[in-house]
């Protein structure tokens, strides 16, 4: 075994950097905690671009969860005339957004979009 050694300058420097990094991490978590709300999931939808592939129209949509709590199995339904298309998003954390695509057989510029349900993760 080595004899007792004092901490070297290098060790102090890395300890200082480590403390700094961890305080940043803990500080960020604290900030999250302070600003955290408890609102249940709520959604907003935005339509993106439409791509035509053969006879079909691909409509890109963005689903945003404006609540604080996460939602699972978020189901989005789009309606054009009589045609319905739907897509399910596995997990949508609070204040996060996710893109998805709905496919229709006619031009979905006037599509009506709605989130019709979700479950607690």
């Amino acid at each position: 075994m080595k004899k007792r050694e004092a901490r070297t300058t290098a060790e102090w420097v890395s300890l200082a950097i480590a403390v700094l990094l961890l305080s940043c991490l803990v500080g960020l978590i604290g900030w999250l905690w302070a600003t955290e709300g408890d609102e249940p999931a709520q959604f907003s939808l935005a339509m993106g671009e439409v791509r035509q592939v053969g006879e079909q129209f691909y409509l890109e949509i963005t689903v945003r969860n404006d609540g604080d709590q996460a939602a699972a199995a978020v189901e989005v339904v789009g309606k054009v005339d009589d045609q319905e298309s739907n897509v399910t998003i596995d997990l949508l954390p609070g204040h996060a957004e996710q893109s998805a695509t709905l496919i229709f057989s006619s031009d979905p510029k006037q599509a009506e979009l709605a989130v019709v349900g979700y479950s607690e993760p």
Binding site: L25, L28, I29, L32, E36, P93, G94, H95, A96
Partner: peptide, 11 residues
């Protein structure tokens, strides 16, 4: 991504 998602995964 939202900050809490990033931090949660990192932690």
């Amino acid at each position: 991504l939202a900050y809490d998602v990033i931090l949660g995964k990192v932690v």
